[in-house]
Design a binder for these strands. Sequence first.
DNA 1: TTGTACGCGTTATCAG
DNA 2: CTGATAACGCGTACAA
Lengths: 348, 348
Amino acid sequence: MVTLKEIAKRCDVSVSTVSNILNGIPKVSEETRQKVLQVIRETGYQPNYIAQGLRKKKTKLIGIIAEDISLFSTPIIIESIMSYCEAKNYRTIMVNLRLYARWNEQWYHDEEEYNSVLNPAIQELLSIKVDGIIYVPGHARNMRCFARDFKIPAVMTYGYTHTPEFPSVVIDDEKGGYDMTEYLLKMGHRRIGIIGGRKDNIHMDKRLLGYQRALFDRQIFYNPDLVCYGNWDRECGYEGAKILIKKNVTAIFCLSDVIAGGVYDYLEENELEAPEDISVVGFDDQVIAQYFRPSLTTAALPLKEIGKKAAELLIRSLDGDEEQTENQSGEVALPCSVIIRKSVKKLL
Amino acid sequence: MVTLKEIAKRCDVSVSTVSNILNGIPKVSEETRQKVLQVIRETGYQPNYIAQGLRKKKTKLIGIIAEDISLFSTPIIIESIMSYCEAKNYRTIMVNLRLYARWNEQWYHDEEEYNSVLNPAIQELLSIKVDGIIYVPGHARNMRCFARDFKIPAVMTYGYTHTPEFPSVVIDDEKGGYDMTEYLLKMGHRRIGIIGGRKDNIHMDKRLLGYQRALFDRQIFYNPDLVCYGNWDRECGYEGAKILIKKNVTAIFCLSDVIAGGVYDYLEENELEAPEDISVVGFDDQVIAQYFRPSLTTAALPLKEIGKKAAELLIRSLDGDEEQTENQSGEVALPCSVIIRKSVKKLL
DNA sequence: TTGTACGCGTTATCAG
DNA sequence: CTGATAACGCGTACAA
């Protein structure tokens, strides 16, 4: 690694002079300035960020903690965080908790084990002296990963912190559920089945709430029999379809695209066709949705927007624009958007 | 951040004592030992890795440079690297170059701009004093990202360094092309079209070479007219299918699953069905392949194996097992595996 | 057991 | 204008 000292030696000047030049302090002769800049270019010198952070307060470095980068939503959020940070002249670095790979959906059950993975990661970022941290969970839930006395700014994506010190940037699941249901209603569907996750899942709860509100707004009774709880997977889509089709629904609202994949499986097996025989919609707008036949109408998650907003909130607090607080609770919910493809039929 | 000094103060001992206890140096009374350990547990103290690396040679930290984590292959490789590193007691940290988001497929055309993104990333990892670096490109090509005088061990995945100092762990594309072609031949196909990437693309070249060798082994003439060069995208699959079907192929070998998606598009539009009317195979075994109808026979990339091997090579060199060199050139090629699904028909 | 110099690369301060 | 030197933070190593 080329250091300041080396540059100084090569140019026969002191480190101070080189440092001054680099930091634009003007009391340097143009001659030495040019010479030093020349050598810096030649050697490809870059400052050591850590050492810089040692003296200056700020490292201009933001740490990202990902619960698991294998989950489809995570890379997109991270990409977006990084893009925004770069535009604002912050560098980023990431640690991956590998929670999913480790415990496969069970991660939030054992607090202690969770902490044994989280704490070293936080420590690592603190060691590097990041200016702030953004946390990217695999799915929405209530998070307590930052102690109240956490010393640096932190922003939560996806999860709910319920503490104004650590803003949450989340999906507006309720509105997502509402909008999709409303779309189906607009297309003439009145008997709409739902297949989703477990009862205690936040995404499930909120989307279901939105579904109910949309029905309510059209004065349609909510029928709990048309709701299948499951595991977000293809299999529960298959099983859900089996149940719901017997109950004569005209549309199935799958709370993930993967679930919709299972519904399609059932349809194929039983020689039914979407959207002719039954309409199907998904949620997430994963890549697979574009390859379904018929291509799947679904709700796109605002992943890019979440990343951007989270980075924006963090950097704003780092750069000291304290006046601006999004709202009292520090919670920002971003809307999904219905992506209309070919899996829904308009009823008469 | 809780520091050693704080622990020492709380326990009314010196930092040295605490350090000694932490490092298992036995000249400490059991009494103070217990007390200190107690406080360490209470405070959740974790050593500052950077400060540790300051004095010790090793930080036990491995840096990963990803060209773009949005590409499907990258998270899987990284996940696997991290898994192996963790098992070997190394921590990992990642920087993301965002090359694809930045320049969209053009990234390797402008050396200078590439370096302006790469160098700060390397510098960042060097600042943190990582023990070694693993580079994860978006696709195979010849890489020159580590100068010959690079001071720390580095391993390349996917790309070819052609320098024994920096081992390459790559996909065995030639064998992949061979195996898939051989599978189609075994299924009775003789006239097999290919749709792939551009002429200068390494994946394309090698898979095509494997295709030719497989034909050769069965004494079938290679017909360059059955090869469509393209852009790896869905569109070129569609266009390729249009061309190849006119040429009466019985099977289309798509060099990516996405291309196969385009082929399916063409089939649907023209009321043809795979595998009845024509057999189709893909490459990559992306998630979408499982959702195609019929589900797509394809070649699974050894992404996990690549990550593991790369980490293994790096850690081996860090831990000083110098005797072991995989082979002279430092290049390890790992095989793909044909995943048989339902898109290929057995002829007669 | 403890005190303390040392390692790192940079910046801030002040003297020349 | 330029240079010498302290300070930054934290853990380690070694002498006391």
